[in-house]
Simulated assay, not measured.
Amino acid sequence: MNFDHMVTAKLVKIVYALSLVPITLMALLMAGYGLDWIDQGSSFGYLLLLSSPFVWLFQVLTIRTILEFVINQFKISEYLRAIKDKD
């Protein structure tokens, strides 16, 4: 029942992999709507189709940055604990 070892650092990989699924599905849905709107003659469909990879990339980079921040916080905590234990 102690918290000497952090589990979050191990779970970040799983969270990242699981977050790729809805991000990718959303981008594919966005591209699908773009193709549907192009078939209906709307120029908005081209915008949706062309912007979907950029939206996907932005969301993946955002999630990655947030998770890297979390990992850095835990590493700082571990390093401070190692410094404290040296004394």
Rank of each mutant, 00 (worst) to 15 (best):
N72A: 12
M30D: 06
R81I: 10
F3K: 07
M1V: 03
M30I: 12
A17I: 09
E68L: 15
I66A: 11
L25E: 01
V15N: 04
L57K: 05
F58I: 14
V15P: 00
D4G: 05
F3T: 06
S42M: 14
S52Y: 06
L47Y: 07
T65I: 10
S51D: 10
V7Q: 04
I83V: 11
D39F: 14
L61M: 15
D85W: 02
F74M: 13
V15T: 09
T65A: 15
V70H: 07
K13R: 10
A27R: 00
Y79H: 10
Y46D: 07
T62E: 03
F74H: 08
S43M: 11
L25W: 00
A17Q: 02
A31D: 04
S19M: 12
F58W: 03
D4M: 00
T8M: 08
G41D: 08
N72W: 06
Y79D: 12
N72H: 08
G45N: 02
S77C: 09
I14A: 12
I63R: 03
A27N: 01
F44L: 12
K75F: 07
T24F: 09
L57D: 11
V12E: 04
M1Q: 03
A17P: 06
S19G: 04
I38M: 14
M6A: 09
I71P: 00
K75Q: 11
L47M: 06
N2P: 01
F44A: 13
N72E: 13
M26C: 04
V21P: 00
Y79C: 05
Q73I: 11
I23Q: 01
T24M: 08
S51W: 01
M1D: 04
V21R: 01
Y79S: 12
A9T: 11
M30K: 12
F58H: 02
L49V: 01
V21N: 02
A17E: 00
S77G: 15
M1H: 03
L47W: 08
M1W: 00
Q59D: 14
T62Y: 05
F54H: 02
M6S: 10
M6K: 03
G32K: 04
Y16V: 07
K86S: 15
F3Y: 10
L35N: 05
T65M: 10
A82C: 04
K10H: 11
L50N: 12
I83A: 08
A27T: 00
M1N: 07
S51Y: 02
F58D: 08
S43F: 13
I71Y: 12
A31Y: 08
M26Q: 03
I76Q: 12
L57G: 13
F69D: 13
A9H: 01
I76G: 03
Y33E: 09
M6F: 13
N2R: 06
E68G: 11
L25I: 09
L47Q: 05
S51P: 02
T24A: 15
L29F: 06
L50K: 09
L11T: 09
